[in-house]
Write a protein that binds this DNA or RNA. Structure first.
Lengths: 147, 147
DNA sequence: TTGTAAATGAAAATGACTTTCATTTACAAA
DNA sequence: TTTGTAAATGAAAGTCATTTTCATTTACAA
C-alpha cells in the first residue's frame, strides 16, 4: 500500500485529488503499522497543511473505510481507530491485543481460535459472519519495567 | 437475584428506597435474561411510573454497575446494554453471540476458547486480564425463517 | 478557458450519555 | 409524630466524538 495506489483508488472512484487529501494519505502511510484516531490524524495533517479541517479528515476516512482501504476499530475509550490495510490482505482479518499500561496495540491472527469460535457458535445454533475480539492485558515490555 | 436482595443492596450501601428505584429494579428483574439499554429501561419504567427521569435511570444503573449487580456491554450500535448478574455468578464471565437479523443476544462460555486466548496472548508476550469477544451472525430461528 | 460535479471549512446538529442545580423526599433521631 | 438532613430526583445544560448542513472553492474534463 503506497501513495500512488491510494491516489489511483480515489481517481478510479471518480474523485479528485486535493491538497488536503494528499496530506491525509501521507499521515495514514506514516502510521501504516499503528492505529490512529481522527484527532491524531487531524493534528498531524495540520502540521503539514493548516488548511485541513476535521470534517475533511472525517469524510475521507469514511470513504476509505467504506471502500475497505482502511479498517476501523472502536476501543473502550469510545474513540474510533483506523489503520491502512496491508497490501495483500485487503480482507486480512485479525484481532487485537491491547496493553493497558502503554496503550500498544498488537495484531494477531489464530486459525485455531477462529475455528473454535465457529464451533462454539454452531453449537449455539449460530452461523457467524464476523466477530470482534480484543484481549486486554500487559505487554512484556511493561511487565519488565514494573519490576 | 430477586427484589429483596437488590433492595437490601441499596439499603446496606446507605441508600434510600424510592418509588423510581423500585420501578427500575422491577424492569431489570423482568429482563433478567436479556440485555437492555437505558432507553428501553426508561420507557418501561415510565410505563409504570411516569415520574422517572432518564437521569435517575442513568444514576441507578451506574450505581448497580459499579457495585457489580449488573454488567454492562457496549455494542456496535454505540449503545450500552445492561443485564442483572445471575445469583451465584457475580463474577461469571461470558461472551456473546449476536443475531444480525433479530437482534437476539445469546451468552456463552467456552473454557477452551479462554485457554486458547491466553495461549495466543502469551505467544505475543501479553499477560491478559480481560477480553471482549462478540460473535455476529444469524441464529437458527432466523436462518429457518428465510427459507 | 470554462462548466460543474466534487470537495472543503465553519458551524450547527446528533446522539448517547453525564453533570449541575434547585428542589423534593426517605428515614433516623428526637 | 415531627424534624433535620443526607440522598435522590427532574429538568436542563454540558460533554464528547462524531456527522451533517450549507455556502463557497476547486479540480479537471471538455
Amino acid at each position: 500500500m503506497n501513495k500512488s495506489y491510494i491516489t489511483l483508488h480515489f481517481k478510479t472512484s471518480g474523485l479528485k485529488m486535493t491538497a488536503q487529501r494528499s496530506v491525509i494519505i501521507d499521515v495514514l502511510l506514516r502510521h501504516s503499522r499503528e492505529h490512529i484516531n481522527l484527532e491524531q490524524i487531524l493534528a498531524e495533517a495540520r502540521a503539514n497543511n493548516p488548511a485541513v479541517s476535521g470534517a475533511t479528515v472525517f469524510r475521507n476516512i469514511v470513504f476509505l473505510e467504506k471502500t475497505r482501504l482502511i479498517s476501523k476499530m472502536k476501543l473502550q475509550d469510545n474513540k474510533s481507530y483506523y489503520q491502512l490495510q496491508k497490501a495483500g490482505t485487503a480482507e486480512g482479518h485479525h484481532d487485537h491485543l491491547l496493553c493497558e499500561k502503554c496503550g500498544k496495540i498488537v495484531e494477531f491472527y489464530s486459525e485455531k481460535l477462529e475455528k473454535l469460535q465457529e464451533k462454539v457458535a454452531s453449537e449455539n445454533g449460530f452461523e457467524i459472519s464476523r466477530h470482534r475480539m480484543e484481549l486486554y492485558g500487559v505487554c512484556r515490555t511493561c511487565r519488565t519495567k514494573n519490576k
